[in-house]
Write a protein that binds this DNA or RNA. Structure first.
Length: 309
DNA sequence: ATGCATGAGGC
DNA sequence: CCTCATGCATA
């Protein structure tokens, strides 16, 4: 009764409603508010800043305490220790980088190179890798495929495109949600619709580097199409589900959030046991805490904060 | 614009 | 259980 909607392509809010209610436009692409570390721009009370620091320390200590009590000292989890780069130099855009229905997943994941430092450490090209790249290119060529070697792996290019995209999208009088649903009309194999959230994140670069690269060609295609025929607003015929249970969004209170951030600072990847302990201390569901950590990790990897250029 | 959640795919 | 791409619900 609630798990049946695996991936409802989100019903369009207004099929043919020429309503454009863009938010206050670009809230500035360079408005970096979410620091990638335990120093969130809290605009709380004046005394909050002081308390916050002390609290954070206390929580951090508590986190360590938890770790100790669990009897697990885990030095640290060497997860992203392996540094790898894209398997092939230029194949991202040509190999169906997007989702089909909701089973997207194209395993072209760049395997977390170095997280925040991947961009600056990438220039470390091994001879073997170069050779492999050449070989791959040769293979593609032999296959008769004109590999679209888009050099859009460049963060700057992506940033520039995102900016242009937003500008032109607004010029067309189209909302982010409209763009999302319109993508399905492009009939690009393997490309369905996207949500307003994703379009928004693309424009604000709050997506992973790889995700940006995958979405760029698609959004570019839409843009050209839309500008070519500046008149169709497309509508996404989707049946309305009657009586579907609405998902409720849990809201973690500020105090708990601060604690979680403190724990995260000392242990970004707590074990199941630690998560359980934290959940208990904060009186939150274990799953909520687990997901919180997952989301927090993802945030660290977003373009805006991983770029060191 | 963004917080919390889902689910596929990979270990 | 994690990572990733995505999305619903919301501030």
């Amino acid at each position: 009764m609630m798990s049946m909607n695996s991936k409802q392509p989100h019903f369009a809010m207004h099929p043919t409603l020429p309503e454009h209610k863009y938010p206050s436009l670009h809230s500035s692409s360079e408005a970096i508010r979410r620091a990638c570390l335990p120093t969130p721009p809290l605009q709380s009370n004046l005394f909050a800043s002081l308390d916050e620091t002390l609290l954070a320390r206390a929580e951090a200590l508590a986190a360590v305490d938890i770790a100790v009590s669990q009897g697990k000292s885990h030095p640290f989890k060497p997860d992203a220790t392996y540094h790898t780069m894209n398997s092939v130099p230029c194949t991202s855009t040509s190999t169906v980088p997007l989702a089909h229905h909701h089973h997207h997943h194209h395993h072209h994941q760049a395997l977390e190179p170095g997280d925040l430092l991947d961009h600056i450490s990438s220039p470390s090209l091994a001879a073997g890798q170069v050779a492999a790249a050449s070989a791959a290119a040769a293979v593609v060529g032999a296959a008769g495929l004109a590999s679209i070697c888009d050099s859009d792996t460049d963060p700057r290019e992506l940033e520039a495109f995102a900016e242009r995209f937003k500008q032109r999208r607004i010029k067309l009088g189209v909302t982010q949600a409209d763009v999302g649903s319109a993508l399905a009309n492009l009939k690009i194999p393997g490309v369905g619709s996207l949500s307003q959230s994703t379009i928004c994140r693309f424009e604000s670069l709050t997506l992973s580097h790889n995700n940006m690269i995958a979405l760029k060609p698609i959004l570019q295609a839409w843009l050209e199409e839309a500008e070519g025929a500046q008149r169709e607003k497309m509508n996404k015929p989707e049946l309305f589900n009657g009586g579907e249970k609405k998902r409720k969004r849990t809201s973690i209170a500020a105090p708990e959030k601060r604690s979680l951030e403190a724990y995260f600072a000392v242990q970004p990847r707590p074990s199941s046991e630690k998560i359980a302990a934290i959940a208990e201390k904060l009186d939150l569901k274990k799953n909520v805490v687990r997901v919180w950590f997952c989301n927090q990790r993802q945030k660290q990897k977003r373009m805006k904060f991983s770029a060191t250029y």
